[in-house]
């Protein structure tokens, strides 16, 4: 038997994985080889030394601290989710409010107010407002036409402009609905 092989067998022998014949061969080699015998003794001593060492145990409040850590983690996750919800919801509300303000403004942007503002010399504001008014009027005209002549729905549905409008409305409504849901969930969480 080679010394390298004997060393491998020593490790297996410590784990009780040598059969009787192998164990005898190992013992024969150990009896003949001083270096291997020394190694075997050290290994055996180590093995019993390690076996005698008790298992190290954590502090008694270990489980409670893990529960606390998991709760903190969950709270952090909820906070993050609700802030994302509020952000998206605000965008949705602003989008809806923007459309409403535009429509309202178009209805109000009639000569008396317009003339007063123009006379006050607010040319720049007037330009901006006029541009907005054109947009609002287009939106208003489209909504009015669709309301008065239902036959237009089919035609409008073919047009890309209508699809854009529909998409915008859905986005705004969807975002707002999401926001409402999150706010209500949060309320349930805070006041169960």
């Amino acid at each position: 038997m080679q010394c390298s092989e004997s060393s491998e067998w020593m490790s297996l022998h410590l784990d009780g994985l040598l059969d009787q014949e192998q164990a005898l061969r190992l013992e024969a080699h150990l009896a003949a080889c001083e270096a291997c015998r020394q190694e075997w003794e050290a290994m055996r001593w180590l093995s019993s030394f390690l076996k005698a060492e008790p298992v190290a145990a954590p502090k008694p409040d270990f489980t409670a601290r893990i529960a606390l850590r998991l709760r903190q983690r969950e709270a952090r996750r909820r906070r993050l989710h609700s802030s994302i919800g509020v952000l998206i919801g605000s965008v949705g509300l602003w989008a809806l409010a923007g459309a409403a303000v535009l429509l309202l403004f178009t209805m109000l942007w009639q000569p008396p107010i317009r003339v007063v503002l123009l006379e006050a010399g607010l040319a720049l504001i007037n330009d901006v407002l006029s541009t907005l008014a054109v947009l609002g009027q287009a939106l208003y005209a489209a909504a009015y036409a669709l309301a008065v002549r239902p036959a237009l729905w089919a035609q409008a549905f073919d047009g890309k402009a209508w699809l854009l409008l529909l998409g915008y409305a859905f986005l705004a409504l969807g975002l707002t609905a999401l926001w409402m849901r999150i706010v209500f969930q949060r309320r349930r969480y805070v006041f169960p």
Binding site: S7, E8, M10, S11, L12, Q38, E39, A42, M43, W45
Partner: peptide
């Protein structure tokens, strides 16, 4: 098997 053997061998060398 070989890792355990190497580990024990290293420890034994240290002890010796």
């Amino acid at each position: 098997k070989s890792r355990l053997h190497r580990a024990r061998q290293m420890l034994a060398e240290r002890v010796i």
